[in-house]
Every structure is written in C-alpha cells, then in structure tokens.
Design a protein around this nucleic acid. Structure first.
Lengths: 89, 89
DNA sequence: TCAAAATGTCAAGTATATTTTACATTTTTG
DNA sequence: CAAAAATGTAAAATATACTTGACATTTTGA
C-alpha cells in the first residue's frame, strides 16, 4: 500500500451523446449522392474521418459551427439536414 | 521532495470558445422583444441562466440541440438567429 | 481472386459547452 | 433613496464534441 498515497486517475468515464440519439441526419445520403467518400467529406469540412463517421452514425451531434459548414457544403439549411425528433415537450 | 512522487493536478486549463467569436446571434434582442428575463428564457430552454448569459455574450456557441430549441422557441430558423461570419472560404 | 480502398471500431487525449455555486454590479421600482 | 430584481463575473466540475492513431472488416475493381 506504500504509505497511504492514493492517486485518483479517473480522467473521464466513457460518455455517449445522450442528445445524439434524438438527432438523425441525412449526411450519409447527401454525401453518397455527391459520390464522396467519408474521407473526402471530412477534408471538405475540415474535420477528421472519425467525426464524419460519428455524426453519420448518430454517435453524437455536430457542433453548431460544424452543422453550419455541413449545411453550406450541401447547399441546404441546417434544419433540413438534421432532423430533431419532436418530443421537446 | 518526499520520495519522487509527482501528482499532476492540472485538470483543464481555462478555455474560451474560439469558434464563438465568429458566431453572433440575435438572442438578446429577441428575448427583450418578448419582455423576458434571462432567467425566464433559461427556464423555457431548460438551461441555466449562465448558459443564456454566455451565449448572448458570445462566450461560446450553443450546441446544435440547444440552437434548435432556441429557434423553435422564437419561431425562427437557426440560420436567422445565429449569424455565421462568412469566412468559411 | 486478391489487393486496394472504404468503412468501422476502440481507446485515450484535447477542446468546448453546460452546470453549480457564490458573489458583485447595474437597473428597476416602490 | 433604498430594496429588489436583473444582469454580470468567476472558478471548478461534468458532459459532450472532436482528434489522433492503430487496427479490423467490408466493399470494390483490375
């Protein structure tokens, strides 16, 4: 036990976007319609491929700035690309 | 020096939304037009008053789900409430 | 068919958004 | 003017978004 020294080492427990579950999007569909790969889209949006994967899968929500870049890139509005499940009471 | 044990205790350095600088919004204006207090708006949006303050001031960006709730609350689109400075080349 | 390209997964780190608490300043109003 | 209400500020914690790197599986095409 070495002198009673305790080092707490839990940096962050694994999270998984609670909100994201409610938020679907049409990104995969739009990306494929343009014949783009995830990597190419990631480049166009200045994010990593992991981010594209996570957002397409709904693992978590895009930030507002990213949502805007996505909307601009596909020439549509944020609200037409991201579908908010209507149970906001 | 007590036996060479080093406990690093820097949890997180202070950040300040880099993106937020580019993102202005009309929330204060819209809130006042409805005669609402920050606290009342916060309640209506299910966030704290601090969050309303920070977003009105542009300290950081709202998340996409919150941006959506704000848009619904004021009956406008996300893009009409949040103004993205156009230097997204 | 088999190699390359595309997609998926996992883990740990960094960045940013949001909360909580507490107090200070400004604005409103009796 | 003084009290109350509204707004501002600050620090530390938690939640979520995004990155990096490494490797596994699926899909595609010569």
């Amino acid at each position: 036990m070495r002198d009673g020294v305790i080092i707490e080492n839990v940096k962050h427990v694994l999270h998984f976007g609670k909100e994201a579950a409610k938020l679907k999007n049409r990104i995969r569909e739009l990306r494929r319609a343009m014949g783009l790969t995830q990597d190419e889209l990631a480049g166009a949006l200045s994010v990593t491929r992991q981010t594209v994967i996570a957002i397409e899968k709904g693992t978590y929500c895009a930030s507002l700035p990213l949502a805007h870049r996505i909307a601009v890139f596909f020439g549509e509005s944020i609200e037409s690309i991201f579908i908010f499940d209507e149970e906001e009471q």
